[in-house]
Design a protein around this nucleic acid. Structure first.
Lengths: 131, 131
DNA sequence: TTAAACCCTAAAGTGTACTAGAGGGTCAAA
DNA sequence: TTTGACCCTCTAGTACACTTTAGGGTTTAA
């Protein structure tokens, strides 16, 4: 799969794909005889993962680390992976909690708005957070 | 409350607070006779909200918009707020879904790692996502 | 009274993540 | 064969969110 096709499939632009390659987020793909990049099918999943992780506030460096997780028979590496995943799980749980709070506040505003009379007058997100 | 105290309370540095002020994320506080900023107590909540929202990937511009939500008796404004909060709720739900997927994958790796024999050999986050 | 700890503005610098531009080669259809 | 849509590298530029620096004034404890 050539770069233009891949870019369209994952909705990123060509320069971004080359940038991700330069930053080590995706492997250097094989080249065709003419020098064009030829991506394997699984690049699509990898890039979709990168997009997901970016959306929720992970940096490219952090995403690279997530993608680098590899459990092998080596016990040392295994323990490292276990520690790393635990840290990331904690971070993710925190993010989910923060999102849930913001969501609850928005829902409160959304529900009370236009809900009748003047219930929601001067309602702000900070006020909605103070339950 | 002076800027140093506020910075310590919310764990941001002084320059960041002045930067947020310059970007309109926090209001210009009153000044003491000597020209020092004197923040009201509620700056703490506002800044904590900003930190939460940043953690989960909102930009300062988006956070400013969230903080600007005000439901008034004006029907027009009310409808706008309802539309805006709905859009933000959709975004937040999407973020929660992405986080849940990443979390499930990490949990799978975390659980299978060192779990016995060689079950988790060469397990990566992308493989863990393919259920 | 002086030194450390605090505050001020304005401007320049940094890191991250792209994004655009220059200058070129490749390929398929008209 | 030439036009348009692709692809390549390398370099420079941009937007965002700080962070540092320069050059000052203020406050407080020793």
């Amino acid at each position: 799969m050539k770069i233009g096709q891949l870019a369209k499939t994952v909705d990123l632009d060509i320069q971004t794909l080359r940038y991700y390659e330069s930053q080590g987020l995706i492997n250097e793909p094989q080249r065709l005889e003419n020098g064009y990049r030829d991506y394997p099918q699984n690049s699509v999943e990898r890039l979709r993962f990168i997009k997901k992780a970016k959306l929720v506030g992970f940096t490219l460096k952090e995403i690279k680390d997530l993608l680098a997780i590899q459990v092998t028979k080596d016990e040392h590496t295994c323990q490292e992976v276990k520690n790393f995943t635990q840290i990331k799980l904690d971070e993710i749980n925190q993010k989910i909690n923060e999102l849930s709070e913001i969501k609850a506040a928005l829902q409160k505003i959304h529900t009370s708005c236009c809900g009748g009379e003047e219930t929601a007058a001067h309602c702000s997100i900070l006020q909605a957070l103070e339950n």
